[in-house]
Simulated scan of single mutants.
Amino acid sequence: MSIRLGYQIPNYTYPGPVENLFDTVVAQAREAEAAGFDTVLVMDHFYQLPGIGAPENAMLEAYTTLGALATATSTVQLSALVTGNTYRNPAMLAKTVTTLDVVSHGRAILGIGAGWFEREHHDFGFEFGSFTQRFERLEEALTIIAPMLRGEPASFEGKWYTARGAMNNPRVRPTIPIMLGGSGEQKTFRLAARFADHMNIICDVADLPRKVAVLRQRCEEIGRDPETLATSYLAMGMVGETEQEVKELAETVPEDRRSRAFLGTADQVAEQLHDKVLAAGIGGITINLIRNGHRPGMVARVGAALQR
């Protein structure tokens, strides 16, 4: 399993009435599929993220959205980038993503991470805990989820989670791929080497060569062939159709994401991603278009440029 070219939909604030909101999401997913993207991904958040919009802006629940997209598409893989482990019981999450796999005829990926957005936890009543606790929970969750995705009953008594022979049927294929998202060299990369089929690296572009090298090292430390762990990179695409639009988009790039944003025309952004990301040893690109991906034709234009 790999993501060669993914399209992430992180923004649901569009012109027009809310009744048309999901139609716009479907249109983007279908445009991505037709344009050669192999994966469509959504965020797993309850509020819009700082730097993209206000917390009260529109945000759809991830797995309801993915289930609906499964019926609106036919070839693209479907995933959260990434599921917040702290929001869901792990056995229930295994059941959820397996149901998505059945509904989509074998196109689901379980993207998962430790969780980080403290305000969502506070407001919705989920325990946030410390950084160390969140990674303890993620490791325990993966210990339950991984066998369930293979159709094996999961039994585990941990500090945070318990499963007692939890079964997971029906299934449509032998297993469902697991993708971790993040950049932590000590915790995330070690868990990816143990449990994941794919690692989506989220970091400043200048750090990519080191991240790739460390991820390979984590695989080698446990005797895993690094070539068996696929990689991709999440890029914020600030793509304009004209020079003026590119200038306007430049003014909206969040301060803390400028080192992860790629600004220019579709062809210019594609060239930047090739030179700075793929050349660093990353296997695939996932891009979002937070300001104008809803505009008809934008996803197709970017997809065409990235595949030239």
Rank of each mutant, 00 (worst) to 15 (best):
S2A: 15
D23L: 10
T24R: 14
A27I: 05
A29Y: 14
A32Q: 11
V40E: 13
F46L: 11
I52Y: 08
G53M: 00
A54T: 00
L66H: 02
G67F: 05
A72F: 10
S79N: 02
T83Q: 09
G84V: 13
P90Y: 06
L93S: 02
T96V: 15
V97T: 08
D101Q: 01
G106I: 11
R107K: 09
A108P: 12
L110H: 07
I112T: 01
I112L: 07
A114Q: 06
F117T: 14
R119I: 05
R119Y: 05
E120W: 07
D123P: 00
F128C: 03
T132P: 02
F135H: 14
E136H: 03
E136C: 01
R137T: 15
L142R: 09
T143S: 11
I145N: 10
A146V: 05
P147S: 08
R150I: 05
G151A: 07
G151E: 07
S155V: 11
W160S: 09
Y161A: 02
R164H: 14
A166F: 02
M167S: 07
T175F: 15
M179E: 08
G182M: 10
G182L: 10
Q186K: 15
A192S: 09
I201S: 13
C203W: 07
D204I: 04
D207G: 14
A213G: 07
L215S: 00
Y233A: 04
G240E: 05
T242L: 07
E243N: 09
V246S: 02
L249R: 12
A250C: 09
A250K: 06
E251K: 14
E251M: 13
G264F: 02
Q272K: 12
H274R: 15
V277I: 09
G283V: 04
G283H: 07
T286E: 07
I287V: 14
I287L: 08
R291Y: 12
R295L: 12
A300N: 03
L306E: 15
